[in-house]
Design a protein around this nucleic acid. Structure first.
Lengths: 185, 185
DNA sequence: TCGTTCATGTAATAGGTTACATGATTCG
DNA sequence: CGAATCATGTAACCTATTACATGAACGA
């Protein structure tokens, strides 16, 4: 009998268990704390929040504010919490394919000058390094100031995932550059 | 003045440099050789091939076959090759966010029984292991029989990427399970 | 006979981004 | 004085999946 929803809906249900209450706050949390494995745009957030209310998974409280638009605070209902629970309990059906533009380019790089391919990999590695450093500073922030938060450990696990993926990809870039150089001889 | 296209279009341009000529063959190549970093459905392939011809990036040759539908072979034009080249030369604008459902669930797993979270990670690790073994057998096949192909080295680099990502993720699963177990005490 | 392979394609739907509109406040 | 932050939302568009339709040949 229970409807199933898309990932975006479950992401919002999950975020509403933290102290984010409005569409704006949700967007901020995602951009700051989930950006290494999730993203979402306002064009999805606001319609999805409306739908949560229509399906009784959440309730809204509208507060008038002068100057600003009404502030709409969303709160999970028991039904909403249950829907989240059920989704959390379901194992992954299948590992989704992550589309990777760099790998796609590399796949066709026989038709490319070697130096261009090397530059592609070098540039990718550089961007990954910046990302890695961002993760490390976020980690320090959480470890420093957020230890009181009940979510903190889980946040750190996901951050660790981001760091490991980034690091493994950088290593692959380096190894592959080496192999391409050898080929050239 | 040059149009830009979406990734799917460039993927098709790239594949047309191999000896895949029809929509059907393209789909097969993707499912067999690019499935660790790319996928595509017929619903995209056929309309995109049409568009390639409309934009003069490719030409079609239609061969009547009795019983079967006409076989349509696509060939890149000089313009098509140029478009592919230009895309290959462009560095990545920004690392895209890969949405990962398991990580999303873990992020909210404070609201979940510990054993369920452990089961989620265990199940994920198991699926990753199967994938890893698939990659290894593909690698053996390429190393054994496809060494004559000029593309083979590049295929192996992308496979190596898939293997490294899979392995790093399995390691992360194991480490995280250990940390969650420690927390429980 | 039934499932798979070959081989094309479309229509409906879902999922997601971007650009736009509005408008006050606060900080440099 | 201009940019950023707070705060909402919609419409147009792009991207992608799924289900469907057609139909012959071939092997188990």
């Amino acid at each position: 009998m229970n409807k199933t929803y898309n990932h975006t809906t479950y992401a919002l249900l999950g975020i509403l268990t933290t102290d984010c209450r409005t569409g704006y706050e949700i967007k901020q949390l995602i951009d700051q704390s989930l950006n290494h494995f999730w993203k979402i745009s306002y064009g999805q957030i606001y319609p999805t929040l409306k739908k949560l209310v229509a399906d009784r998974l959440a309730t809204v409280t509208t507060t008038a504010q002068d100057g600003k638009p009404d502030r709409k605070e969303y709160t999970l209902t028991a039904e909403g919490k249950k829907a989240l629970q059920e989704w959390l309990e379901q194992p992954l059906q299948q590992i989704p394919v992550e589309r990777n533009e760099v790998i796609l380019k590399l796949f066709f790089s026989r038709h490319q000058r070697t130096e261009h391919t090397l530059a592609l990999l070098q540039d990718y590695k550089q961007k990954l390094l910046e990302r890695y450093e961002t993760y490390q500073s976020i980690e320090q922030m959480i470890k420093g100031s957020h230890l009181e938060s009940a979510d903190a450990n889980y946040w750190l696990y996901t951050l660790d995932y981001g760091k490991r993926m980034t690091k493994a990809t950088m290593e692959w870039c380096e190894v592959t550059k080496g192999q391409i150089n050898q080929e050239e001889d």
